[in-house]
Amino acid sequence: LADLAYDFTRLEALMHHLDLTTVQLVWRESAAVFHVRDPFPVGGVVEDPATGAAAAAFGAYARELGLVPEDAVLTLHQGEDLGRPGELTVTLRAGDPRVRVSGTGARIS
C-alpha cells in the first residue's frame, strides 16, 4: 500500500462513471487488524488520512462476506503513508446491524 500512486483524473472519471463515492484499498495484517488507504478524487483530494464513513462501510462489508465474525472489534490503520497516522476502531455486534466507528481527531490549522 505504501507505493500507491494513481492518475487522479482517470480515477475520478472512472469513479463518476461507476457512480462510486469511495475506493478503499485494504491489506489484512491479522484477523482483526487492517491497513487501509482511501483515494478520494471525487472529493477533490488525493487521499483522506482517516475516513470514518469508509471504515463503517468496510466493517459492514467484511461482516456481510463472512471475513470477520459477527461480533468483532477491528482496528484500521490509515494515513501512515501520508505522514498522518490514524487508527479507527470498528465495532460489530452479533444481532445488531449497526456498525460503530471510533477514533481520535486532530485539529488542522
Rank of each mutant, 00 (worst) to 15 (best):
H35E: 11
H35R: 14
R37Q: 06
G83F: 07
E70Q: 13
V68N: 01
L76R: 00
G43T: 11
A55T: 04
E80D: 15
T22G: 13
A31Y: 06
A106H: 14
F40M: 14
G44I: 03
R10E: 15
D96R: 08
W27Q: 14
H16R: 15
L67E: 08
L18K: 14
L4Y: 02
P97M: 04
V99C: 05
F34N: 02
F40T: 07
P49C: 11
R93W: 04
V99M: 07
V45M: 07
E70Y: 06
F58K: 00
R107V: 15
S102Y: 03
P49L: 10
R37W: 08
E87A: 05
H17W: 11
P69K: 07
G59I: 00
G66N: 10
G103R: 01
F8D: 12
R100H: 13
E64N: 05
L65F: 01
T9E: 14
S102H: 07
G52Q: 11
R63T: 01
A94V: 01
V45C: 02
L76M: 12
D3E: 14
V26L: 12
A54W: 00
F34L: 14
E70M: 06
G95L: 06
D3H: 10
L82I: 10
R100N: 09
G52A: 11
T89V: 14
P41W: 05
A2T: 09
P85D: 09
R107F: 13
L65K: 05
A13H: 10
L82K: 05
R28L: 09
E64F: 03
L20Y: 06
R93L: 09
L67R: 07
T9D: 14
G43Q: 05
P85F: 08
E29R: 14
E87W: 01
E70N: 12
G79Q: 07
V73H: 08
S102F: 01
M15A: 03
Y6R: 10
S30W: 13
A50P: 02
E12G: 15
E64S: 11
L76V: 15
E12H: 11
R63E: 01
L4V: 09
V26N: 03
L67N: 02
P39N: 06
L18M: 13
L74S: 04
H17I: 06
L67Q: 10
P97Q: 09
A57R: 09
R100A: 13
A53E: 00
V42K: 04
Y61P: 01
E64K: 04
F34K: 06
L67S: 01
L67M: 10
A57K: 05
H16Q: 14
